[in-house]
Write a protein that binds this DNA or RNA. Structure first.
Length: 256
DNA sequence: ATGGTGGCGCGGCCA
C-alpha cells in the first residue's frame, strides 16, 4: 500500500500537476492539503476519471483537505475529537484495515503569537485524537503538512531557524509526544540523503539554493512502521512551472 | 532589508 501526502497550495491551480503525478506515481492513497476550494467546486470528476475515489473537506480561500484513494473511503471524519475548529484541516478515513488521517497542521505564524497558541492547542487535540485511534484501529497512519521540522537535520540552516516557527522547542515537543504515543516518522526509518526537504519558500530562490525544511510527514503506527518498505520525497513536481511550494512525500507498506 | 513570492480575489490576509 502506497500512501502519499502533498500540500498543493490551491488544487485548482495545481490540478494538472496532481493528476499527472497520480498517473506516474500510482499511489493507493494521496492526502492533499491547502486545496483552497469549496466542496461545491471540488474537481471530483478529474480524479474519478483516473479510477480514484475522493473525499474532501473544503472552505473558501484558506485551508481545505482531500484524500484521493483507490478504495472507497469508510468512516469519514473531518474534525479532531472534542475540538471545534471552523478551519478545514482534517480528513480521516479507513481504507481496508488502515485508518488514515490527512492533516493540515496550523502554521503558527510566529512564536508567541495567537496563531502559535492555536497551533499548540490544535496539536494537543491531535495527540488525544491519535491516541484514541491507536486503540480503535489495527493500523493508523497520519500524513500531511505538519508545519514542524522534527529535527535540525530537517532544516537547511538550523542556526538561522533556531527557536523560530516550524522549529521551536514547544512544537517539536508536541510532535515528540505524538511519536511517543506509538508512531514513527516513516522517512527516518531509512537512510536518507542529507538536506532532504519537502518545502521551500517561493521567495529568494529558496528552491534553487535548496533552502528548505522537511515539514511534510508520514507518521506510521509502530506496528505499521514494521511493514514500511520505503519512504521518499519526490522533488520533481517542485521543478515544474508554477509549482506548489511543497512537494510529495511517499511511503510504501507491505500489508497482507 | 518588517523585504522577498504566490494564492485568493480585488484589499488585505495568510503562508
Amino acid at each position: 500500500m502506497k500512501i502519499a501526502t502533498w500540500n498543493v497550495n490551491s488544487l485548482r491551480v495545481r490540478l494538472e500537476h496532481v493528476t499527472d503525478w497520480l498517473k506516474q506515481a500510482q499511489p493507493d492513497v494521496l492526502g492533499l492539503q491547502e486545496t483552497k476550494v469549496t466542496d461545491e467546486l471540488f474537481p471530483a470528476a478529474d480524479f474519478e476519471d483516473l479510477g480514484y475515489h475522493v473525499a474532501y473537506s473544503g472552505q473558501p480561500t484558506y485551508n481545505g483537505v482531500a484524500v484521493v484513494s483507490r478504495l472507497p473511503p469508510a468512516d469519514v471524519v473531518v474534525d479532531l475529537e472534542g475540538y471545534d475548529d471552523p478551519a478545514r484541516r482534517v480528513l480521516c478515513a479507513t481504507y481496508g484495515d488502515v485508518r488514515v488521517l490527512n492533516l493540515y497542521v496550523p502554521n503558527g505564524q510566529s512564536v508567541g503569537s495567537e496563531k502559535y497558541d492555536y497551533k499548540l492547542a490544535w496539536l494537543a487535540a491531535l495527540d488525544a485524537h491519535l491516541r484514541q485511534d491507536l486503540e480503535r484501529h489495527k493500523h493508523v497512519v497520519a500524513v500531511g503538512d505538519f508545519n514542524i521540522a522534527p529535527d535540525d537535520r530537517d532544516v537547511h540552516d538550523p542556526v538561522q531557524w533556531e527557536g523560530k516557527i516550524l522549529c521551536s522547542p514547544r512544537e517539536r515537543a508536541a510532535l515528540g509526544g505524538i511519536l511517543e504515543a506509538g508512531f514513527k516518522d516513516a522517512f527516518r526509518l531509512f537512510e536518507q540523503e542529507e538536506k532532504s526537504f519537502s518545502w521551500w519558500d517561493y521567495r529568494q530562490g529558496a528552491f534553487r539554493r535548496n533552502n528548505g525544511l522537511r515539514i511534510d510527514l508520514i507518521l506510521a503506527s509502530d506496528d505499521l512502521s514494521a511493514a514500511c518498505t520505503g519512504c521518499s520525497i519526490d522533488v520533481a513536481p517542485r521543478r515544474l512551472q508554477r509549482p506548489s511550494d511543497h512537494t510529495p512525500v511517499v511511503a510504501e507498506f507491505s500489508l497482507p
